[in-house]
Design a protein around this nucleic acid. Structure first.
Lengths: 217, 217
DNA sequence: AACGATTTTTAGGCAAGGCTAAAAAATTAT
DNA sequence: ATAATTTTTTAGCCTTGCCTAAAAATCGTT
């Protein structure tokens, strides 16, 4: 049995270390989970004992295949629930995270599979993040950062890198949502800002914003 | 903050003691929760400290208004999720319990309210149990036991008292479901068995079964 | 009313998951 | 190459929720 707490650590290692393939430091995990380094060391040992993680003292942790699969399963659930909350329960994409953090730990294979079917097998969550399949695989996003797109070209907003509250609120305020068509008008080299056109209006976005927007062409 | 474990105790006290109004014994709770009496004593004290329960040593526990509301909220969530699982995710009514036991602890007011709306404000769960509203109130079931119904009369199966696995399986096997119309044909005083007619066939049910079937007229 | 049986509480312990403070290892700077 | 700094681990302690065993209270019977 993988406990709730263990699942959270697996998720953190998965996210920090390229799906857990690259070793991540104790401190990095502590910061992500908002706990102390000593607690992380404790838990890492337990995960290693359970064959979910590879751990060598002072050299960081990565995930075993078993651990990676367990992490992917939690992430799969998280993202499926996010889709449900946004599509069916009128949540906005900046409201879903906290609730999905709870729902992702519900244990029932039938529940996940039926939810997946009910939602018609979505491939991405409301933030544009891909949803792993039952085996932990997913088609990587083929979207590219808006700063790398030629002036005059158009694409569909399909992923936002930063999914913090402030950023999502910024997007809402400027009427930008996943799935929207965006045309790149003009790049300003001085401050690296970008002038773009959405279906509703023209807009200038800063470098900071642009770095977080990914379009698929 | 009410913990998961505390919520389970509140639920047990609520169910055992007429919505927690009547004091229930330590042993009764222990049996219901499948734990030891000493653990129950410990937890009861915590609930009393938090003003969720009224507790006098050696004299059992009842719920305060606050405790009763907290319990009703958990039960509300449990039953709403059961409706969702059966109506939207193809669960049968004997499969829902275990998953609903987990889902009932998810904390989010918006989630419950939106789920309620999504399900179109159901008043009863798939077993026929009533769903408390936000204030913990619900219209009591006005259904009566099938043994108290006159021969020749007809009613709709609206509640089953026993919701154990074996009993629900029995009902499935005999093609009996909530909402089905049932006509009482003949009462046999010798063994208190009852002959009934459903839309699909005639059937003889034992006293044990009859005691668990409630119809609304 | 008092004895025995049952129920409930107390006392002391254990595992999980956290914390602080101190020790040890690794890294960076001089 | 060694000193200073940072990172990681260890050691010891805390809380929650559970357990067993023993003590205390209550109940049922005669």
């Amino acid at each position: 049995m993988v406990t709730l707490s263990e699942e959270n650590y697996l998720k953190a290692i998965y996210h920090l270390g390229k799906q857990g393939k690259v070793a991540v430091s104790t401190n990095a995990i502590a910061e992500k989970i908002e706990t102390k380094a000593s607690s992380v060391t404790d838990m890492i040992k337990k995960l290693a004992d359970k064959n979910l993680a590879n751990y060598v003292k002072y050299q960081g942790v990565s995930l075993t295949n078993e651990g990676r699969l367990a992490a992917a399963s939690v992430i799969r659930k998280h993202r499926l629930w996010e889709v449900f909350l946004v599509n069916n329960l009128n949540f906005t994409w900046d409201e879903v995270h906290e609730v999905a953090e709870q729902l992702e730990h519900i244990k029932s294979l039938k529940l996940v599979n039926e939810l997946d079917a009910f939602l018609e097998y979505p491939t991405h969550d409301p933030h544009g993040d891909p949803i792993p399949d039952k085996d932990g695989n997913y088609s990587p996003i083929k979207s590219i950062n808006i700063l790398e797109i030629e002036e005059g070209k158009e694409g569909v907003l399909s992923f936002v890198k930063d999914s913090s509250d402030v950023f999502l609120k910024y997007l809402n305020k400027n009427d930008l949502a996943l799935g929207d068509s965006i045309k790149v008008l003009d790049f300003e080299p001085f401050d690296k800002s970008l002038s773009i056109e959405t279906k509703s209006r023209k807009l200038i976005i800063s470098k900071e914003v642009a770095q977080n927007l990914y379009l698929s062409l």
